[in-house]
């Protein structure tokens, strides 16, 4: 009995101490660092910087949100940095999923574990479309690609990158063995590679593809440089092309990217909840939503619970392809 009382007293005491600890009492502190895993100017940089002021607004307006680029190791450096911070909500990072999870999935040394990150919510997501050169494309449609006897060449970033992995899973599912022309630094570079005829086709995020569409021309005439031939979705195609869903490949609709914000593992629940609530409000702020729609990067809010569930699902999905991913990651010539 005495033991039970002691345990209860200790538990209550510990809880009280935690509740009144300086870390929580004055949270949000003066500064929260919103880490950016890539250099200035890219999609992650832009959306993080845009989101910062809205997050500040819903955290009471007194805290300063500092956007800080920490590029390196293809995004790993920022995640490692976040994982090593004190678990007090002072640092947050928008993760690139599934890219950030890959080292954990294939068992590579990463310095962080996405399964242990405290997830706060999702900001945006993107899904893919397969595109070919509008003028130099050897293949007019996806059927021609699937029937082709010659090897399909795909300009892409290096093995292990998000686009490469999605490509590897997609073409594996469709029974095509393509040859990858790797080494392009970004999706806009490999898209240019397709336009100038370095390869036959490639995979692009829909938002990235939209910048190649002319606003003055309607429908198909708008595809002057790149044209879509396959959309990865279970819904109706936005561009009037066949979809993976229609081809019976329902599982592939998960392929894409999710921008999910997380904080240091072990962050006290009260702080985590406060951050997650503010993040959700910021992402659903009508002004932020309108901006996302205007620039072709629509928001896709998910609360902390659903985001955590999504990370688990993504992890399980990509783990199925562990061998394929590990092989593609190690592929060298």
């Amino acid at each position: 009995m005495i033991g039970k009382i002691t345990t209860s007293v200790l538990a209550v005491g510990a809880a009280a101490m935690l509740a009144s600890s300086p870390a929580m009492a004055d949270y949000p502190r003066k500064k929260i660092t919103f880490l950016i895993a890539y250099g200035p100017g890219g999609g992650f940089d832009t959306i993080t910087r845009k989101l910062g002021p809205y997050l500040k607004k819903y955290l009471g307006g007194k805290v300063t949100i500092v956007a800080k680029n920490l590029p390196g190791g293809r995004g790993k450096k920022a995640a490692q940095f976040l994982a090593k911070r004190k678990a007090n909500g002072s640092h947050i990072l928008m993760f690139n999923m599934p890219g950030h999870a890959m080292p954990n999935i294939i068992g590579e040394k990463a310095g962080y574990d996405v399964r242990k990150i405290d997830w706060l919510g999702r900001v945006a997501q993107f899904r893919y479309v397969i595109v070919t050169s509008a003028s130099k494309g050897k293949y007019k449609n996806i059927q021609e690609v699937l029937k082709s006897k010659s090897q399909i060449k795909i300009p892409i970033t290096g093995p292990g990158t998000t686009g490469y992995l999605a490509s590897a899973i997609l073409w594996n599912a469709l029974g095509v063995q393509p040859k990858y022309i790797t080494g392009y630094k970004s999706s806009s570079r490999y898209a240019l590679g397709v336009i100038r005829g370095d390869g036959d086709l490639t995979i692009l995020a829909k938002g990235s593809f939209k910048k190649y569409i002319s606003s003055k021309k309607k429908k198909r005439a708008a595809f002057k440089d790149l044209k879509p031939i396959l959309e990865i979705t279970n819904g109706k195609s936005e561009f009037g092309v066949p979809t993976t869903g229609e081809m019976g490949q329902k599982d592939l609709s998960i392929l894409g990217g999710d921008r999910i914000v997380g904080t240091t593992p072990g962050t006290p629940k009260a702080i985590k909840d406060q951050l997650a609530t503010a993040l959700y409000k910021a992402v659903t702020d009508p002004e932020f939503v309108a901006w996302g729609n205007k620039v072709g990067r629509p928001v896709a809010p998910l609360n902390a619970k659903d985001a955590t569930k999504l990370v688990g699902e993504l992890f399980s999905y990509y783990t199925q392809y562990k061998d394929l991913l590990a092989a593609s990651n190690k592929k060298t010539r």
Binding site: S215, K224, K294
Partner: peptide
């Protein structure tokens, strides 16, 4: 990136 922050989509448009 600055253009995007200001709601302008770069590219053809």
């Amino acid at each position: 990136g600055v253009l995007v922050l200001h709601g302008i989509e770069p590219g053809q448009k």
